[in-house]
Simulated scan of single mutants.
Amino acid sequence: MEKHKNTWKKLSTTIQYSNPWIEVQHHEVLNPSGGEGIYGQVNFKNIAVGVVPVDAEGNTYLVGQFRFPLEEYSWEIPEGGCPLGEDVLAAAKRELLEETGLLAKNWTMISRIHTSNSVCNEVGFIFLAENLTQDEASPEETEDLKIKKVTLKEAVELVMNNQITDSISIAGLLKVARLKGI
């Protein structure tokens, strides 16, 4: 891909809010046309990791939970945060085990994505996990999770019918389906 020049200019930046997970910045800017303006940005203090576990029969495992910001229930692939500086594969393995109790012998990084590049800098890594064995799940205290085993084809139908709306889940499930010829 060709490289493009940044046509935005930051005049000043202030941190409006910060907690252990995010930081909200206010920028005074010159936009690409040279006009003065403002830009709000959310910086994440973790890297997003998602895992599409696929068993020998072609099933995958979805995690259901109530999502506070959306005020609705969401079905997703197992996912979570990787502290900056931690190995993303190690974080993906931890999240899969914590949320589903699954261990995988084979891991493939299938995607690097930006989750919402108009207002935040969050980057995510999505892995395919195969050759699965069951262990015991240990969700975090903030997680009230339900696990659903479905075929990969059924998971794609849930995406196509807008029943799975999480961007990392959509990207991961569609990419794995394409890789598997589904």
Rank of each mutant, 00 (worst) to 15 (best):
A90P: 02
I110E: 10
E143P: 00
I164T: 03
H114K: 14
E130Q: 15
L84W: 07
A92R: 00
D166P: 00
G85E: 12
V159L: 06
I113N: 12
V119M: 11
T142L: 12
E98I: 04
T115A: 01
E76L: 07
S118G: 04
E154M: 04
D87E: 15
R94H: 08
S138I: 05
R94W: 04
L128Y: 05
E154R: 03
G80E: 04
A129I: 00
S169C: 07
L84G: 05
V119P: 04
E140G: 12
E140K: 13
S116K: 01
E140P: 07
S138W: 07
N161K: 13
N106I: 12
D166S: 07
N162R: 09
E157W: 01
I110V: 15
W107D: 06
S169V: 01
L145P: 06
K105N: 15
N106V: 13
I147C: 02
N131E: 15
E141T: 07
D144M: 12
N161H: 10
L96D: 07
I77W: 03
N131L: 09
V88C: 11
I170F: 10
P78L: 05
P139M: 10
P83N: 08
A90S: 15
A92K: 00
G124I: 09
P78N: 04
S111D: 14
D135P: 03
L158D: 09
E141D: 13
V159C: 13
H114N: 14
V88T: 15
N106S: 14
M160N: 15
E99S: 08
A92Y: 00
F125K: 11
S167N: 06
L102K: 06
E130I: 06
E76R: 13
T142G: 11
K153R: 15
M109A: 14
Q134E: 13
I164N: 01
L96C: 12
N121T: 15
L158F: 14
E157S: 11
V159Q: 03
V88E: 13
K148P: 00
T100K: 01
N121A: 10
E76G: 03
E122D: 09
L128I: 02
V150I: 04
E157G: 01
E76A: 09
N106H: 13
F127N: 05
S138M: 09
I110L: 12
V150E: 00
D166C: 06
I126T: 04
V159D: 01
Q134I: 05
L96V: 11
K148Q: 01
K153N: 06
E86M: 12
K105C: 03
C82T: 06
C82L: 08
D144R: 13
T142A: 12
A155S: 02
F125Y: 15
F127G: 07
G81D: 12
D87M: 13
V150T: 00
I126R: 03
A155G: 01
A104L: 02
L128S: 03
Q163T: 03
E140R: 14
D87Q: 13
T151P: 11
E141L: 09
I170R: 14
N131V: 12
E130S: 15
C82A: 14
N117T: 02
L102C: 09
L102T: 05
L132C: 02
V123G: 01
G80S: 04
I77R: 09
S169Q: 04
A104V: 05
E140N: 11
T142R: 11
A137P: 05
V156I: 02
F125V: 04
R94P: 01
F125N: 13
E79S: 14
S111W: 07
N106K: 15
L89S: 08
W107L: 11
T133Y: 03
